[in-house]
Computed example of a mutant assay.
Amino acid sequence: MTITDAHRATAWQVQSLLMGYPDEQLLGRFPLLRAVTRTLPTALAEPLTAFLDHAETTALTELAAAYVATFDHRRRFSPYLTYFAYGDTRKRGMALLRFKHAYRTAGLELDGTSDGAELPDHLAVVLEFAATGDLAVGQRLLIEHRAGLELMRLGLHEAGSPWARVLDSVSATLPPLGRREHEKVARLAAEGPPEEEVGLAPFPPSGGLP
């Protein structure tokens, strides 16, 4: 089955929810997410089904603890896309503004002051924007940060994380990696994000990643 823009939008919406913190509300949506996933091409659906199979047979407290340990405590798996490209340097602030501008142009405004509000480059936020805001712009943002996405995907697989399957599905919505993209991933794995004289701790080693 050919992957259409409608398939991508649907997949991004499901992926966005699964990349958020797992709570009772998400648990209640699993039957709907599974039903929607069945309408997608195999390359997008199979990884999402595998994650849902795991999530539905795992205690919510255990799943939530794994999410925090993976995404909140390990920079290597940071869900904030600009971190991979800019680290904690001053340039990252400008990159965040670009995300905000893209959302604002599409008529969306993030409330960065509310409790629990995510930064605009959080993968779940970007996926939701791509699904419901502006598909073309959202896809471009994902492609621009493809090296970070791919590094996170490979690292999650290496760590045996169930969220690796969600990243597999995200990757399947994007064009295949070319030689230049593979080189960017390898360079990022070897060198880590850029650093600045602001006390940034060294990027954790990437183990066996390319």
Rank of each mutant, 00 (worst) to 15 (best):
L108Y: 12
L188W: 01
L96C: 05
V14W: 06
R34A: 15
R179M: 12
F51Q: 06
A189P: 02
Y103W: 03
A55W: 01
F30L: 11
D72N: 04
L141M: 15
Q13R: 14
L151P: 06
R38P: 00
G207N: 06
D111Y: 08
A102W: 06
F30R: 11
A201I: 00
L63S: 10
E196W: 09
T132E: 13
F77K: 01
P210E: 08
V170Q: 01
P47Q: 08
T49K: 05
G199W: 01
H7Y: 08
A64T: 06
V198P: 00
E183W: 01
E181Y: 03
T89D: 02
D168F: 04
A55T: 09
A55R: 00
T173V: 02
L141T: 07
P205C: 08
P47F: 12
R29G: 10
R180E: 15
A190G: 03
E191H: 15
L81P: 02
A59N: 11
A45S: 14
V185D: 04
L96S: 03
D53Y: 09
L60T: 11
P22H: 13
L81E: 10
G116V: 02
G148T: 00
E109P: 00
E62L: 12
A65C: 00
L200T: 15
G178Y: 02
T89S: 09
D115H: 14
R146F: 10
G148D: 03
L48S: 12
E118M: 00
L18N: 10
L154Q: 15
D168N: 12
V36R: 15
R165H: 12
H73T: 08
D53L: 06
A106L: 08
R90V: 05
T105E: 15
R165Q: 10
D53N: 14
L108Q: 14
G138M: 04
